[in-house]
């Protein structure tokens, strides 16, 4: 039992080192975030489960807004200039399943750029709090 506690303590302390850097820095700054959102949108475009939600969307604008938003959420020097989550998703009929698929692609994109799990979780928790404004049950 003691060795298990020690092992657990070690696993958690591995990530404590990463906390020396700010969350924004762990995401590679604005360029890192722009790369992640680009990768995410690229994957979304190829996913027939949710691609239809993006058919009439200006992807370049969406990429800029998402990058701003994530940058702001992780404490970077950016200001999100888009509409509120509620206003921008009104009547789009987005389900919890659609939301999950997008989250899945974001996670994959973060993994591709080797973002530490602890940093991923901090962003995901903040985005998950927007679920109720995005999804129409």
């Amino acid at each position: 039992m003691k060795s298990i506690i020690v092992a657990l303590a070690l696993l958690f302390s591995v990530t404590a080192g990463a906390a020396q850097q700010s969350l924004y820095q762990q995401f590679g700054g604005k360029q890192g975030i722009a790369d992640i959102t680009e990768e995410m949108l690229f994957q979304v475009g190829g996913d027939e489960r949710i691609a239809h939600h993006f058919e009439d969307v200006d992807i370049v604008r969406l990429h800029r807004l998402l990058t701003e938003q994530i940058c702001q959420v992780v404490g970077g020097p950016c200001e999100y200039t888009g509409d509120t989550m509620k206003a921008s998703h009104r009547n789009l009929g987005i389900s919890t399943g659609d939301f999950n698929v997008l989250v899945e692609h974001l996670i994959r994109a973060m993994e591709k750029f080797d973002i530490p799990t602890s940093a991923q979780n901090q962003l995901l928790a903040k985005l998950a709090a927007m679920h109720n404004d995005v999804v129409e049950e």
Partner: peptide
């Protein structure tokens, strides 16, 4: 589930 729970773990 707590996505960002203790130790920034889920």
């Amino acid at each position: 589930a707590w996505l960002d729970g203790f130790g920034h773990r889920t």
